[in-house]
Every structure is written in C-alpha cells, then in structure tokens.
C-alpha cells in the first residue's frame, strides 16, 4: 500500500480537525478490515490516515431515556454480546452474527459497517464505483449475479454492503456526524444514498465528517433479521431482510420492512409495510408481505434468483419477529 502519515487522536475534536473537505486525502481507520484492503488494492490512496479507535467517546453502548446510544467504534462482537442489545434488538444481533468471521466481528466496528465500500467486483477491480468503461456501465450486460434487483435503473447497480444498515433503518435509528464546525443527526435511511456520478459516495457522510454514534429510539418492537447466503463462512449475504413491528395486541400497528443487499442502498419495502398494518402475522400473511416487498423488482440478466430469495427472507424475518426468535 502507498505510504501515509498516521495519527491516533484521543478526542473527536482532535480527529475532526485532522479531516479535510475533499475525499481521498485523509481517510479514517477504524476496524481496518475494509479500509486497509482498499488501500492495498489502491482503491484508496490517502496521504494521511486517522485512526479513531483511541477515541474513548466513540466507544460504549448506553441506554438512556431517549433510547440507545451505540458508539461508532463499538465492535460487532461488543454489539452482539451486549445484554441490553440482545434483549431489545435481536434484529441487530442477527445482522452482526451474519458477519460470519469471528476475526471480522472482533475488529470491525458499527460505524465501519455503515461506511464500508460496496463489494461490487467491478468497483473492486478498478472500474470505479459505477463499474463503467468508456462511459458505459459494464454491469447490465456483464457479470451481475450479485448486483441490484431494486433501485437499479442506473447509473448505480452495486448493492449496499452494510449488514447493520437495514436493521438500523427498520428500528428508526439516526446517526450522528461530527465535523470541526459542528454536528448533525441524519436518519439512518437518509444516510445511504444512490450515487449519481463517479465522484459521489454511497453514504451522506461528508469527507470532513466523522460518524460518532448511532441513536436508536426507545420503542418496543418485535424485530428480526433473516439472511440468505451462498456460504456459511465469511461472506456477505445474498439478500437480507430486517423487520420491526409495533404491535397492538396480536396485530401489527405499523411495520418497517427493510431489505439488504438488493439495491444500492438498504431498501425500504413500503408495499409490504402497508400490507402488514392491522394484520396478525401468520405464515400466509408473511408470504404475502414477501411478495409485496418484491413487487417492483427489476432483476438484471443473471440475478432473478435473488427475487425469490428476498421474498423468503422477508417471510422468515416476519415469522421470526412474531415468534420472538430472531
């Protein structure tokens, strides 16, 4: 990897002061499992690297009146092992467990999961975030079996790699972004964006901002995440579904259904959400919701199989949430 200068600040303020207004000059290092890989592949060539793991403010999980606060540098392992998280957010635990390498869970952070770059093999092999050659996307006519089946009218065809994103969106979470000049909170569903050109990113974070924490409102939901994957060991899921149900007795008052790994962002399946309101979760209702969630799917030449997988993921996530086993 290209040589770089290295800093390990101990406060958010110090770290934010080291960031710059342009992507590419100064990068943030947290768990390192994606960042260092990107640097070895020359997909990231920062001249300066800011390690944020020494910042105490970025750690810790705490439950307050307003809800849960999860520090951005909390590792996936710490998240999964936290008793409060296990009790309230089985959906998050299942999503973190799906990162199926203990090493990655010990190193990788919650913030890093949200900020990791796409795994699209065109991107990873140097064809840019949008996978183009001579101004034309290589993906619709190329090797697209793992690409998007929703939100794929171009120019982006990759799928969001985040495991926690769909679960956090379904739980109504917000992320806090801090720069040298201030801070802002962004709803998790607004944090992920579909880039419209090669110079934009797939997240709303600005180059001079640091993701410092995740805030989950305190609302009782039945929640679950269900993934379908090609191999059990270390890999990303082919599809995932995270659901959060606000219940009124045994019927659903309101539902959030968010799909992962099917679109350039986590994908809120509003048709399924509408269908579920006022219903009890039975196997046939869950199946109907799965169908509704994928009603507008537009698979590419090689990935129609993901449509059925995603239907099944929605169905099983709903049944898991309703039965309290995630």
């Amino acid at each position: 990897m290209q040589a770089f200068e290295y800093a390990s600040p101990t406060t958010v303020k110090e770290a934010a002061a080291l960031l710059q207004n342009k992507w590419g000059e100064v990068d943030v290092l947290a768990g390192g499992t994606d960042q260092l890989t990107l640097m070895k592949e020359r997909l990231a060539t920062p001249s300066k690297l800011v390690n944020v793991k020494g910042i105490k403010e970025l750690g810790g999980i705490s439950a307050g009146k307003a809800g849960f606060r999860i520090g951005a540098a909390v590792t996936l392992d710490e998240l999964m092992e936290n008793a409060e998280v296990r009790k309230n957010y089985p959906s998050l635990v299942a999503a973190a467990r799906g990162v199926s390498s203990p090493q990655i869970r010990n190193m990788g952070t919650v913030g890093g999961d949200l900020c990791q770059r796409p795994r699209c093999w065109y991107y990873r092999n140097g064809f840019g975030l949008l996978g183009t050659k001579d101004g034309k996307s290589l993906i619709p006519g190329g090797e697209n079996r793992y690409h998007a089946i929703l939100g794929n009218s171009g120019p982006a065809y990759f799928v969001s790699a985040s495991s926690l994103g769909p679960a956090l969106i379904s739980l109504g979470a917000k992320v806090k972004l801090v720069s040298a000049s201030g801070s802002r909170e962004v709803a998790a569903d607004k944090f992920f964006v579909t880039p419209q050109n090669e110079n934009s990113r797939e997240i709303a974070l600005l180059p001079n901002e640091l993701l410092t924490e995740i805030l989950i409102p305190r609302e009782a939901t039945k929640n679950a995440t269900y993934e379908l994957r090609q191999k059990e060991a270390l890999d990303w899921p082919l599809v995932s579904a995270s659901v959060a149900l606000k219940m009124k007795g045994s019927t659903v008052a309101s539902a959030r259904v968010v799909l992962g790994h099917v679109a350039p962002t986590p994908w809120a399946a509003s048709q399924a959400e509408q269908l579920l309101a006022g219903k009890s979760i039975t196997e046939s209702v869950a199946e109907e919701a799965g169908k509704a969630a994928l009603a507008s799917a537009t698979p590419l030449s090689q990935n129609a199989y993901k449509v059925q997988l995603a239907r099944v993921a929605v169905k099983r996530a709903l049944l898991a949430a309703a039965s309290g086993r995630a």
Partner: peptide, 25 residues
C-alpha cells in the same frame, strides 16, 4: 485481505487478522 485467516493472532484476548491491523496500531 482479511479473508482467509492464515495470519490469525490473538490480540487483547480476541482473534484478529494480523494482515489488517497496522503494527503501529
């Protein structure tokens, strides 16, 4: 590339990929 596990060491009691930890860190 944090994929295969051949470089696994235990750091602060937890398994990690030594290829994806900077020595300075």
């Amino acid at each position: 590339r944090a994929t295969c596990g051949a470089c696994t060491v235990i750091m602060s009691g937890k398994v990690v990929y030594a290829c994806s930890v900077l020595a300075i860190d």
